[in-house]
Design a protein around this nucleic acid. Sequence first.
RNA 1: GGAGGGUUCGUCUAGCAGGACAGGACACCACCCUUUCAAGGUGGAUACACGGGUUCGAUCCCCGUACCCUUCACCA
Length: 634
Amino acid sequence: MQAGADDQRKSNEPDPPDVGVQPVGNVHLPQVRGHVLLAAGERHDVVHTQDLRHDEQQDAEEEEEGAHGGKLASKAGSASSSHAEPPLRRVVRRTTRSYSRATFASPSPMLGLRTGKGSTEPSMSVRVRFAPSPTGPLHMGGVRTALYNYLFARRHGGQFLLRIEDTDQARFVPGAEDYIREALDWCGLTPDESPWKGGPDGPYRQSERKAMYRQYADQLIAADKAYYAFDTPEELEAMRERLKAAGVAAPAYNAVTREHMKNSLTLSADEVKERLARGDEYVIRLKVPRHQEVRFEDVIRGWVVVHSSNIDDKVLFKSDGMPTYHLANIVDDHLMRITHVIRGEEWLPSAPLHVLLYEAFGWERPAFAHLPLILKPDGNGKLSKRDGDRLGFPVFPLNWQDPTSGEQSSGYRERGYYPEAFVNMLALLGWNPGGDVEVMSMDQLVEYFDLARVHKGGAKFDPEKTKWFNQQYLRHRPDAELGAQLQAKLTASGIDTTVERATAAAVLLKERATFVDDMLEGRYLFTEGSPLIGNADANAELKKRWKPEATPALEAFIERLEALVDWTPAALEATFTEVLQATGTKIGQVMPLYRLFVAGRMQGPGMFDVSALLGRDEVIARFKAGLEHCRAWA
RNA sequence: GGAGGGUUCGUCUAGCAGGACAGGACACCACCCUUUCAAGGUGGAUACACGGGUUCGAUCCCCGUACCCUUCACCA
């Protein structure tokens, strides 16, 4: 439960005000049934290139682009200032036969200024950060937080930084940091400043900033905003027990109880000095003001008000010499000039404390935006690793093996998901651009992203929709790429073939695939010999379908096939039809057998396409073998 | 329990400043297309948590109730 409960925690933060989305207009394009059509000849390219960027050429730059996250530039570039109209968004929907359902976004012609309610005016110096704790694999909730930070930064031309919050030495997990880095890279969310890349405000690993926190804690003590506390764990426990027994709902070390504890507020100056000199263990606590309304305006939730009496004197500096999350977080955000803290909702309860800290330091505080949680598909509560195991879907972007327990956790990448699909799905979990556009490239997400449109309520994760996204991306992938991947998979399973052939097969197979692996169902396109051999399922199916009456037609077809000059799908179909007429056979009596003889399974691409690809010799051989096979029964 | 947050179809959501048959997508069920399976097309079913107000009129504004979630460490 520990693992699960923690999953979504290490999130991150910030954001600025954005703008409302203008009405979507789509213009200059003929409209058909509410869909915008592009010129017939262009529709394909447009979708590929601009929406999914899966063209070959773009393919090449894909990785790099992802690695730099850079590219937002494109938005600026796309600002076709030709028209001084309000920002428009064209909604492009494919209306071609097979892909008409999904709604794709096309790059907006221009990015005009947006104005939105409750949005803060983004300055040109937006700086946000994703601050995970390296305590294990990055949870998909964390990835979404990173994504929103990234989108926000790009949208406003700011910087996206990554800071490793490893102040808790006890929870250090080897490999976790590398995992974070790799996961972010895979998703195309590469930070502008990070422990690995460096930057003007480094170091970006809190353990390496250790030396600078103490002075800030001291500064607070000097200003009477914090104090030393010498209470032992036992004494703290005793205090809680005592208060609990006295009927106190929420025992806390606060303005009232601190009067009865061992701290620099109750002990004499001399004793404090002596204890310090003696080396007694102590922590430094924030001296929360007694009567004060703490308030801040959350970018996505509006005003949040909490009375200081509900906030306890949080430990800022631990006895092990490390700052707690609260202190380090505020100090670092300030030093790193973070303008917007975009983080998970689980941090909302401690936000007032953070506000108090900024006040204690006298620093201007960043804007806060607390993201809704990602909930489990069924029931309520945060999505945890256990849910993934239980329901059979990944909860992490990449595979992960726990260094101590050896426990394995599967990731989206290894399951065959495209990072674009994963990111697209994540982006829409809690946010949407307003129209009915769903399939969007990273550039488009950047262009449309608006923190003000993020939902307040938690979103249940839907693994099915994630598959759908993958399917969308897969079918828009260039055939050559799919062919190469299919070839590689076949080789891995002991089947040799050429890229050309694999590509030709991929064209037929991708239509019914969600993952590249799904195309392996068409392995019969590459093997030799009857697919009936050793295939129990095929034989069972065949027994149900076989009727001796079909024999004449099948034999006639084989005969015609041997003499067929034009070995193409069209010619094959024409021949087949002729045979049916000549023999007075119904298609339903023969086609299933044709399919079983040649493919060995009842589902798949059209048999004429399959046959054309397989080649005359192989098709005829399988036909004959199939016939022999059935005759044995009769 | 305290504090805070949340609540539109099964799910993600739209609904820009009260007046629409409450829209889309995923999933589901039909039908169409089709040699099969997909894909695609068409149609269907299902939602404003509840109760009061304010109003000529509330998904939308106000109050209350219910339920859910998060959080209460020398963890982040």
